[in-house]
């Protein structure tokens, strides 16, 4: 069963910001030369049930853009994205969290945003809070939390909504060792349960434990796609080669 199918996706930005009327007018007058920027160009891949795919590549390669296109947050100008199953995305530290609300209020808000019902949220609430290890701080406003605590809370909610497809962008790097270990266990468990995982990271050791395939992006294009070790080796070789690209 296929969980995510991405075919010939391109994401194109016009480089010129059109915030102001005068630039819109001058842009219209010179509309011949619109400078286009391809954040993604002709990207295709598929992710099956129980599969986990690593996204690798340098900063600005298009990993985050690809994740937000798959999440349905951003629309591709070309190509199609098909998603089968409930998806949860952890794309940024504590996105959707409000600093003035308490940890507990934020957990419930985030669960609602991720599509849980009131009953399901009540049912899972204790487990989410326990997993985060926030303890008594859960009744404190979020602005009193450290970065690591915020991240732990966000991650706890995301993995407890029982997603069929999990998208993760670089967020595992934040928490402490113990929490990272627990996250890893939980992700491996999700993988065993047959959930699909799409994970962008620069940490090869993390990727080696979770993913078995990799997609190497550079300048929005797929450089190579295949078994994790092969792609990682090629990527590491290319990155260490002096001024190759």
């Amino acid at each position: 069963m296929i969980s995510v199918l991405v075919e010939n996706v391109s994401k194109i930005y016009s480089r010129r910001p059109r915030q102001f009327l005068h630039s819109a007018v001058s842009g219209w007058l010179r509309r011949g030369h619109r400078e286009l920027f391809h954040a993604l160009k002709n990207v295709s891949f598929q992710l099956g049930e129980g599969e986990s795919l690593a996204l690798i590549g340098p900063n600005g390669a298009g990993k985050s853009t690809l994740l937000s296109v798959v999440a349905g947050l951003s629309w591709p100008e070309e190509g199609t994205v098909e998603v089968y199953g409930r998806m949860a995305a952890v794309l940024e530290l504590g996105s959707g969290f409000h600093p003035d609300l308490t940890g507990a209020e934020n957990v419930r808000m985030n669960a609602a945003l991720l599509g849980l019902s009131r009953r399901k949220t009540n049912e899972l609430f204790d487990r989410m809070v326990d997993f985060s290890g926030i303890g008594d701080f859960i009744e404190q406003p979020l602005r009193t939390y450290s970065m690591g605590m915020t991240m732990r809370l966000a991650f706890s909610v995301a993995i407890h909504v029982e997603p069929e497809i999990l998208l993760i962008d670089e967020v595992l790097a934040a928490g402490d060792q113990a929490f990272q270990a627990r996250c890893m266990d939980r992700m491996l468990a999700l993988k065993r349960e047959g959930r699909a995982i799409l994970c962008a990271s620069h940490v090869a050791s993390t990727l080696r434990r979770i993913c078995h395939r990799a997609l190497w992006l550079d300048h929005g294009r797929v450089v190579r796609q295949g078994p994790l070790e092969e792609v990682l080796a090629a990527y590491e070789e290319a990155s260490s080669a002096p001024a190759a690209g």
Binding site: R86, H98, D100, L101, E105, R108, M109, A112, L113, G115, L116, S117, R118, T121, P141
Partner: peptide
């Protein structure tokens, strides 16, 4: 996928959030 009950939970959570944020520090 979402069912209508979940929509209402989301909507009421968003309304409550707005209300709480506005009055918490007053």
């Amino acid at each position: 996928m979402r069912v209508s009950g979940n929509y209402w939970f989301l909507l009421s959570s968003l309304i409550l959030r707005d209300f709480r944020v506005r009055y918490r520090n007053m």
